[in-house]
Design a protein around this nucleic acid. Structure first.
Lengths: 157, 157
DNA sequence: ACTGAAATCGCGTCAAC
DNA sequence: GTTGACGCGATTTCAGT
């Protein structure tokens, strides 16, 4: 992914597509005051350069029966540092883990997890996550209220 | 949003659109072995019922000059409980705050924040967040490595 | 009532200027 | 960077089950 400069038009395209990922090419072109073929080329270029990495439908988790979201922190046990890559692969393979980063601070990993309910979350944590050799100190923060929903990245003008 | 049952076809549609939010109606119809008008009606219904809440382009933050992601926890000072709604409104209005939940555990709020670099994150935390009356005990976990990128919700079959 | 065939209209896409 | 043309897809209507 090249980190070359995006001009004002590129940024406007990104802004619109972050809000409406299904905007048709002509809608988009109209909004940014560009001809349709121009607009089309811009979008393709942004996709090829890896700026636009894909498009996704946003789904309400509740409607899929996923009533609980939690952030879960964990560490890798000192004696298991050689198993780090293995643990990371296992983490990636759990569909209920939506996101995972290594982070600075008191814990090594921070995960975003969804589950049907508290019972099923608890089962996931104890029967799956904590069963992984090398995983230590699992702590969870259950999401109570969504104050700000997942939002588009800010686009500097 | 009605929480009525989704059948196997609905779930398949959701699965595909979570992976490719720009899939055309005919592509979608072909993948789920349905006629185009049928498929179209299903999608519209899912949108109207609030199951599909929108579509979004995924953007690589680095290409927008956003080199740093962090999770930030904070509390509301004991004497400022009456200002909670006010604080939440301020939080919602910061574009660099991508997401915010109240959570169980040691902290009250957990935020996902992006910034250009560490300096700019630090400025945001000290000059913006910590300036909010009632905000207390701001701690940040800087994301070091992305182990698993934001992923679609699991769809139970 | 629900399905799919068909028909229309507009858009995506490419090529030429 | 714009115009024009072609073909396909989106969307509606309608007839059949």
């Amino acid at each position: 992914m090249t980190t070359e400069k995006l001009d004002a038009i590129d940024r406007k395209i990104i802004e619109v597509l972050q809000r409406d990922g299904r905007a048709s090419n002509v809608e988009l072109a109209a909004q940014i005051h560009l001809s349709a073929p121009q607009c089309f080329r811009r979008v393709k270029s942004l996709e090829e350069r890896g700026v636009l990495r894909g498009y996704r439908a946003l789904v309400a988790p509740q409607t899929l029966g996923l009533g609980v979201t939690a952030y879960v922190s964990l560490n890798i046990a000192g004696e298991a540092f050689d198993r780090v890559r293995e643990v990371e692969t296992l983490i990636r393979d759990f569909p209920e883990i939506l996101e995972c980063h290594t982070v600075s601070g008191d814990c090594d990993y921070l995960l975003k997890v969804v589950a049907q309910d508290l019972k099923s979350l608890s089962q996931f944590l104890t029967d799956r996550l904590m069963q992984i050799k090398g995983v230590d100190d699992v702590r969870s923060m259950i999401c109570l209220e969504e104050i700000k929903p997942p939002s588009p990245l800010p686009v500097r003008d």
